[in-house]
Design a protein around this nucleic acid. Structure first.
Length: 852
RNA sequence: GCCCGGGUGGCGGAAUGGCAGACGCGUCGGUCUCAAAAACCGAUAUCGAAAGGUGUGUGAGUUCGAAUCUCACCCCGGGCACCA
């Protein structure tokens, strides 16, 4: 028997598999298809343990699926545009492409060294013009469909990255990439109108039964649907006379309109200056506007929310009772949600309450909880309105409406009868309308950076902004650019100067590039048809492969990438290119790989574990298996090398056992010359049962991505096999020597079960120990018979009043009465003097005798 | 504040109404060896000499039976957050 040597086996088999094209997809196969995909990596350098974990999960699913008879698409590519490449280029006076492609080469080599079964012929690289060309094509398609907009509005600007960011890329007021404080600026930028799909993006989460609940929850939160009403408040003149103009607010609590004691505009509210221009209030209001604009996003996100406001001197009329309501401006109103104006009801909203207290505005109680001490006083209309209450905070829950005219006594709250009644009345009076608002904002896709996909648009002094004609795609990034010298697309004359495709006059190219997330929003579609030169992909091919059957990636993309991809899928479906609604049928979000102390691995902490070093010591198969065994894939994993060493020992053990089972272990085999034949027979039978039980268990576990327990079950089969081999007497030893059927069968099962996990190890055993034909990775998955997993006899626990008191062994097919009698016999001592009231029998498990 | 996870030996974890701690790591003891390593065997929740207790964050409840279901509370992690 040769020794297990991963360092010799692994590179040799990797080369062989590649030469044989073992993982190339056959488009013409009539097998059922399965699309297994891991999120493509950013080529930031060499791979880290997080990559090892993510891509190992995917490889196990892909290899298992092939053995189950599927035609598997399992591709790999790179999300290759982005800022780190540009920064590296500036630092080293080179070009981002150089850094990017070098890193891609490094990562590709590492992936190959891990033995991942990709079809390398389908590789997609986002910065390749043959790919980004179609990203531009999709941009034009969205433009045609009215989903591209260029508009001026306050945007998030990262000074460090020198570019604007999408809403989703601002985390607690900071840039998602460099963590700098984000600034608000008014800029004209390009948007994808993802809000047009807000309702469907929310509603279709229900279809995603194969997604983790927390990811769906996060997306639902982010979309943030609120149902309420738009209510018009008529603006009064400075003298208090009706003007005929009105200001609309969005509210989910129209039921509280009688408690509206003031009205608030956001500092950025469009018509604000007009209202105060030339009045005594102008200075104070504009000072507040100025101060609000200086508050950074970080302060907004983390501050103590001290509210500031100023009175505008103007009033509006409350549409339900005509009351004159003062109009304030305050920094707690969000400008780009709803209408940028709110009606303030301090008794029912904590923010309004705090503001009212600070500025001495009235708090009118109009909704009370049933146990509120004010209740007896306010229960019936008293003819007077109480405005002085001594509450510690607002009452935001459901309650009974009081002091609310005809609605007094009704139940108020979100989606309450009171709310419905008031909205209905407002609609009849033409003063309000049902409305739905979403927290989701449009996707700002333009970036002021070089290393991205150029936006295919041209600015013509005569024709305005015009799309680049489809036949002129791609708009290529110029290669002769000196980023280190401060050159940008905007200063690159050869890029900027062009002619207008409409009038032929001189024009300028758009110099912004697209957010890198536009590249990752459709790459999985390109994999189905990666070499297409006429379209981003062929619809028939995409529809045949998609949706992705199993998608695997990090939880950090719960909102960004996954939401954008769902949006793209729906748009391209509406464009007639796809016939499904959702891109990813099943999603596995892997947990982070941390160090042994539960700390995030980072260069600054010096606790980074290098996959290369681990492979160099134990081989890729042991690294893969150790990662899988560490715990459930969606939980955090604490990497420790002892587990890896243990896995290496386990592989060595299986190696010897498999050779031994087929009689090739040589004379060093252990066996007991004095073993008892009957005992050896029992162990052989136990091994046979385990062979069936474990195949069943591993199959079930792989179907549910429970890789850790699958491996534990394989270890159990290994243990049963080792027990048999150790105690076998001479004749069983001969059975192995002559390739006896049971030993041979168990050896094959072990090798096949391990094939998805430790592919090189299994392949070498398949070919050398088992002398199998072809590759183990093309073998069918082992069958199992649940009947053969059953033992003749079972041991049952016997409980007295729920406590285990004894064990009995009975025939598996013994009848219930006999089992119950045997059980009572077994605990007769403890039963003494007690009356048996009830006996519960759970076949195969226990008997519980209830007595007292 | 709102929403979502989670709390089990020395450690990673298993068990989703039926014998808690599978499987592995670690530790201890043994075989082999001049010795060590490797390999192999055995032990390993806890109190107790044993019999027998106790034990899945805390407290209550449902049930013949609860880590698992229900309610309340404590703690840890994640997401969103002045979104009306």
């Amino acid at each position: 028997m040769k020794a297990y040597n991963p360092h010799e086996i692994e590179p040799r088999l990797q080369l062989r598999w590649e030469e044989d094209g073992l993982y190339a997809v056959d488009e013409h196969s009539d097998k059922p298809r399965r699309y297994v995909l891991e999120m493509f990596p950013y080529p930031s350098g060499d791979i880290h343990m997080g990559h090892v974990s993510n891509y190992t999960y995917g490889d196990v699913v892909a290899r298992y699926s092939r053995m189950r008879g599927f035609n598997v698409l399992h591709p790999m590519g790179w999300d290759a545009f982005g800022l780190p490449a540009e920064n590296a280029a500036i630092k080293h006076h080179s070009h981002p492409a150089k850094w990017t492609y070098e890193n891609i080469d490094t990562q590709r080599a590492s992936f190959k060294r891990m033995g991942f079964s990709y079809d390398w012929d389908r590789t997609v690289v986002a910065c390749d013009p043959e790919y980004y060309r179609w990203g531009q094509w999709i941009f034009l398609e969205l433009w045609k469909r009215g989903l591209v907009e260029r508009r001026n509005s306050p945007v998030n600007w990262c000074p460090e990255c020198a570019t604007v960011l999408a809403n989703e890329q601002v985390i607690e007021g900071r840039c998602w990439r460099c963590h700098s404080e984000v600034q608000k600026q008014d800029l004209t930028q390009w948007y994808y109108k993802i809000t047009d799909y807000a309702e469907e993006l929310l509603a279709d989460l229900d279809q995603l039964t194969g997604w983790p609940e927390n990811v769906k929850q996060q997306q639902a939160n982010w979309i943030g649907k609120s149902e309420g009403a738009n209510v018009d408040f008529e603006l009064l003149s400075a003298e208090g006379e009706p003007t005929g103009e009105s200001i609309t607010v969005f509210t989910t609590r129209a039921d509280t309109l009688f408690g509206c004691s003031f009205f608030v505009l956001a500092p950025e509210y469009a018509g604000l200056h007009e209202l105060v221009a030339g009045t005594e209030h102008e200075a104070e209001v504009m000072a507040l506007v100025e101060a609000a604009s200086k508050v950074s996003a970080v302060e907004r996100a983390q501050g103590d929310h001290e509210k500031h406001g100023a009175f505008t001197g103007r009033y509006v009329a409350n549409p339900v009772n005509g009351e004159k309501v003062p109009v304030w401006v305050a920094d707690y109103v969000v400008a780009d949600y709803g209408t940028g104006a709110v009606m303030a009801v301090p008794c029912g909203d904590q923010r309004d309450f705090e503001f009212a207290r600070k500025y001495g505005l009235p708090i009118i109680p109009i909704i009370l909880g049933d146990d509120d001490p004010l209740f007896p006083q306010l229960k019936d209309e008293q003819g007077r309105v109480v405005t002085e209450v001594d509450w510690p905070e607002a009452y935001a829950a459901e309650g009974t409406l009081v002091q609310s005219g005809p609605y007094t006594g009704m139940v108020g709250g979100k989606h309450s009868p009171g709310e419905a009644a008031i909205v209905e009345a407002l609609e009849k009076a033409g003063k309000g309308k049902r409305a739905t608002e979403y927290r989701l904002r449009d996707w700002l896709i333009s970036r002021q950076r070089y290393w991205g996909n150029p936006i295919p648009a041209i600015h013509c002094p005569a024709c305005g902004v015009v799309p680049v004609p489809e036949e002129d795609l791609p708009v290529r990034l110029p290669e002769d650019i000196d980023l280190a010298a401060g050159e940008t697309l905007a200063t690159h004359a050869g890029f900027v100067d062009t002619v207008c495709p409409q009038c032929g006059g001189p024009a300028k190219r758009e110099t912004d590039t697209m957010d890198t997330f536009t590249c990752s929003s459709w790459y999985y579609m390109r994999y189905t048809d990666p070499h297409n030169v006429h379209a981003p992909f062929d619809s028939a091919r995409a529809n045949a492969w998609m949706p992705v059957d199993q998608y695997i990636g990090g939880i950090e993309h719960a909102i960004l990438h996954l939401l954008y991809s769902r949006f793209f899928t729906k748009v391209l479906r509406d464009a007639g290119m796809l016939d499904f609604d959702e891109p990813f049928a099943n999603l596995l979000c892997q947990g982070m790989v941390l160090d042994a102390n539960g700390e995030v691995m980072s260069k600054s902490k010096g606790n980074v574990v290098s996959p290369e070093e681990m492979i160099a010591e134990y081989g890729a198969d042991a690294v893969r298996a150790a990662m899988l065994f560490m715990g459930p894939p969606d939980k955090e994993k604490l990497w420790n090398e002892d587990g890896l060493a243990g896995m290496y020992k386990f592989l060595n053990r299986v190696w010897r056992i498999v050779f031994d089972l087929v009689g090739k272990a040589g004379d060093e085999t252990l066996f007991d010359p004095e073993a008892d034949a009957a005992q050896a027979h029992d162990l052989a039978m136990a091994m046979k049962r385990e062979r069936h039980r474990v195949v069943g268990k591993v199959t079930e576990d792989f179907e549910r991505n429970n890789f850790n327990t699958a491996l534990a079950a394989i270890m159990e089969l290994t243990n049963a096999t080792a027990a048999f081999l150790r105690l076998r007497p001479a004749e069983h030893r001969m059975e192995c020597k002559t390739g006896g059927p049971l030993c041979r069968e168990v050896a094959e099962v072990l090798v096949k079960l391990l094939a998805p996990i430790a592919p090189h190890f299994a392949e070498e055993l398949w070919q050398v120990a088992l002398e199998g034909t072809g590759s183990v990775h093309e073998q069918p998955w082992p069958e199992f018979d649940p009947e053969q997993a059953k033992a003749d006899e079972v041991e049952l626990a016997v409980q007295l009043n729920g406590k285990v008191k004894a064990k009995v062994t009975v025939a598996a097919d013994a009848d219930e009465d006999a089992v119950k009698a045997a059980a009572q016999q077994a605990i007769s001592g403890a039963l003494e003097g007690k009356a048996v009231r009830k006996v519960i029998y759970v076949p195969g498990r226990l008997v519980n005798v209830v007595a007292g």
